[in-house]
Amino acid sequence: MKRSCLLAILFASTVALPSAHAATEADYKAAYAAAEAASKEAAGMRNQWTVTVSALAAARKAADGGDFDRAIAAAKEAEALAKASIFQATTEKEAWKAMEIR
């Protein structure tokens, strides 16, 4: 009785886990797509940051290993970094003149 109960729990958890993963994988994919789009925009402005590229790679690696929590966190970080680089490139279109030796 005790034993079968344990087995039932184990069984339930193996069934439950993949479905929990499936939900987070979709979240990851959405987070990654958003990060990738922002990073492409930054690259198009010739202002990609190395840390964005690393964060994207870390997201992919975590996802490959099935750790979608970490993957999503890395993807969100990548998106934030890419957006900061876009903001920087946009601001610098005029702001660079402030530094010029005249």
Binding site: A89, M99, E100
Partner: peptide, 13 residues
């Protein structure tokens, strides 16, 4: 003179 990278440095910085 344009700032770039996460450090926000230009060549001039």
């Amino acid at each position: 003179y344009t700032r770039r990278g996460q450090m926000n440095f230009s060549c001039a910085s």
